[in-house]
């Protein structure tokens, strides 16, 4: 089992399947929110469903819309289970708080290189821990 410690954490404990890429994340720029898929053609996860996944990505990108959009996505149950980032911006932190999502950010080393795609992971925000089971 691998245990990774984050500097920032928000949300409730979750367990799920990791969807991993060394790429950015913005709800407006990258997603077809109606279909629940990554839609930006240049994104490394283009065409893949994010619904119910623990997204493990490099950094928050793009504009301020994600602060509303994560809440809107959660209202339709077409939302990731959690978001894990090397680097976060205030918008995704605000969006996670408003939308009730779990989020971890800020690791020693590249978290996208430490978590295998498809692995089952567990997040404990109170201890700021991500476990690869």
């Amino acid at each position: 089992m691998i245990e990774l410690i984050a500097r920032h954490a928000i949300g409730r404990p979750v367990r799920g399947s990791a969807l991993v890429a060394h790429d950015g994340f913005s709800a407006r720029y990258d997603l077809d929110r109606a279909a629940g898929k990554f839609s930006r053609p240049a994104h490394k996860l283009a065409g893949q469903s994010y619904v119910g996944k623990v997204l493990v990505l490099d950094t928050a990108k793009g504009g301020v819309a994600s602060a509303w959009m994560l809440h809107e996505m959660a209202s339709r149950q077409l939302v990731p289970l959690a978001i894990v980032l090397n680097s976060v911006n205030p918008i995704l932190a605000q969006g996670a708080s408003f939308g009730g999502l779990t989020m971890l950010a800020g690791f020693d080393g590249d978290v996208t290189a430490r978590v295998p795609n498809g692995a089952t992971v567990e997040i404990d925000p109170e201890r700021r821990v991500l476990r690869v089971l």
Binding site: G62, G63, P90, I91, Q94
Partner: peptide, 23 residues
């Protein structure tokens, strides 16, 4: 609006983070 924030911070010398709608 990220364009508003970066212009205000950089060109005007004001102080703001990216504030999403709710915040």
């Amino acid at each position: 609006d990220t364009g508003v924030v970066i212009y205000s911070n950089s060109v005007c010398g004001a102080r703001s983070n990216f504030e999403g709608g709710p915040s």
